[in-house]
């Protein structure tokens, strides 16, 4: 059974039809990168997986359970899904350690001592064990994003969602975050990553999904989708991303 299975997903914001029938699965242990031009619906798709956006039509199954069903215990489903945001969204009024323990103690009902031990271990995994007592605002963007990853990992998720995790970072800080994500992938974490980092997608992803205008245009191993795309729309997009200074000849 697939970890995540999405069937015929539609989502509109007012008259703007953002997702136009998405069918899509993520298998256990798989790393899937979603690429595509801005406005193509990649982030909306990701946010539908833990129902931060409620789709108008279609189903989202997590481990076979339909989380779009009104009777589904959504909070329980979300505990299995960690999410990392473009703007980090750390809790600024809590220390780094408390950011990583607040959901453990309130949602998973772990004891304070157990939660702190797990938080320290995950912060160690992202290389920030020396920052436990700092507040988020005292950290660089790259450090904040790694804390956000640790906060999500502290909940022992089965799946991690990354919504353009490096897009808000200064270029020299991107590497640290990608290193942590690469390590996570090697450890066997199931990951769904919306990204513009083509090199990362090519190296780490098991499968690359190209989206445009609310539909999945093509998907497959990175060598095929990025290396040798079949669709013209994919080729146009990759040309622009991989060679931003390239000027298209006017016909």
């Amino acid at each position: 059974m697939a970890l995540v299975e999405i069937q015929n997903l539609h989502k509109s914001f007012g008259s703007n039809h953002v997702l136009r029938g998405i069918d899509f699965t993520v298998e256990e242990g798989e790393v899937v990168c979603v690429i595509g031009p801005s406005g193509s619906g990649k982030s909306t798709l990701l946010r539908c997986v833990n129902l931060l956006e409620v789709p108008q039509q279609g189903q989202v199954f997590v481990r076979g359970e339909d989380i779009t069903d009104r009777d589904c215990h959504l909070d329980a489903a979300r505990q299995q899904i960690g999410m990392v945001f473009q703007q980090f969204n750390l809790f600024p009024h809590l220390s780094v350690l408390d950011n990583c323990t607040v959901a453990q103690t309130t949602v998973l009902k772990r004891s304070k001592a157990a939660a702190e031990q797990i938080a320290r271990d995950t912060l160690d995994r992202v290389g920030l064990s020396d920052k436990v007592s700092a507040y988020p605002m005292q950290l660089s963007g790259g450090q904040q994003q790694r804390v956000a990853i640790a906060r999500a990992l502290s909940m022992d998720p089965a799946l991690m969602l990354f919504d353009e995790p490096t897009s808000a970072l200064d270029p020299e800080l991107v590497g640290d975050v990608l290193t942590v994500m690469r390590k996570l992938a090697l450890d066997g974490m199931t990951m769904l990553v919306v990204t513009h980092e083509m090199a990362f997608a090519r190296e780490v992803a098991d499968r690359v999904v190209f989206m445009d205008a609310g539909v999945i245009v093509e998907q497959g191993p990175p060598a095929e989708v990025i290396g040798n795309p079949k669709e013209e729309r994919t080729r146009t997009f990759l040309r622009r991303v991989l060679d931003p200074t390239h000027v298209e000849p006017t016909p």
Binding site: N50, L52, D75, A76, R78, Q79, I81, G82, M83, F85, Q87, N89, L90, F91, P92, H93, V102, A103, T106, V107, A148, R151, A152, M155
Partner: peptide
């Protein structure tokens, strides 16, 4: 309070009430 705060807390599986008490209100107090 930035809506992203509530989203991050909800994504961690916190219930509406907990999101309000533990994340939104402490920041709103400022």
């Amino acid at each position: 309070v930035d809506p992203g705060q509530a989203e991050a807390a909800e994504a961690l599986g916190m219930s509406r009430g907990k999101v309000m008490r533990r994340v939104v209100l402490p920041q709103a107090m400022r």
